[in-house]
Amino acid sequence: MARQPKGRLINGILILDKPTGMSSNHALQRVKRMFGARKAGHTGSLDPLATGLLPICLGEATKFSQFLLDADKRYQTTAQLGVRTDSSDADGKVVETKPCEHITVTDVEAQLPQFRGLISQVPSMFSALKHQGQPLYKLARAGKTVAVKPRQVTIHNLELLSFKYSQVRMDISCTKGTYIRSIVEDLGLALDCGAHVAQLRRLQAGPFVAEQMVTLEDLQGIIDEATQGQVVEAGQWPDITPAFSMLDQLLIPADTAVLSLNAVQLPAHEIEALQQGKVIDHATEYAPFDVVRVYNSLASDATAFIGLAEVQPEGRLKAKRLMST
Rank of each mutant, 00 (worst) to 15 (best):
A40D: 08
T20M: 14
A27I: 08
G44Q: 09
I15V: 11
T20Q: 15
G44S: 11
F35M: 04
Q29M: 14
K18G: 04
M34I: 12
K18R: 00
M22S: 06
K39G: 10
I15F: 03
G41L: 01
R30L: 14
G36D: 03
S24C: 07
R30T: 14
G41P: 00
L14G: 00
D17N: 13
I15A: 08
L46P: 08
R33Y: 09
R38T: 09
A40S: 03
P19G: 09
N25Q: 13
K39C: 11
H26Q: 13
K18M: 00
F35K: 04
I13Q: 05
A37L: 01
A40K: 00
S24I: 03
V31W: 01
P19S: 02
G36Y: 09
N11A: 12
Q29H: 15
H42W: 13
I10Y: 09
T43G: 13
H42Y: 08
R30V: 15
N11K: 12
L28F: 02
F35H: 01
H42S: 11
G44E: 11
R38G: 13
G12K: 01
G12H: 01
K39D: 05
G12N: 00
R30H: 14
P19M: 07
K32E: 02
D47R: 02
D47F: 00
A40Q: 01
G36W: 07
I10V: 14
Q29T: 07
D17A: 04
A27C: 07
L46M: 06
S45Y: 02
P19V: 04
S45V: 01
F35D: 02
L14A: 10
N11G: 12
V31S: 11
K39Q: 10
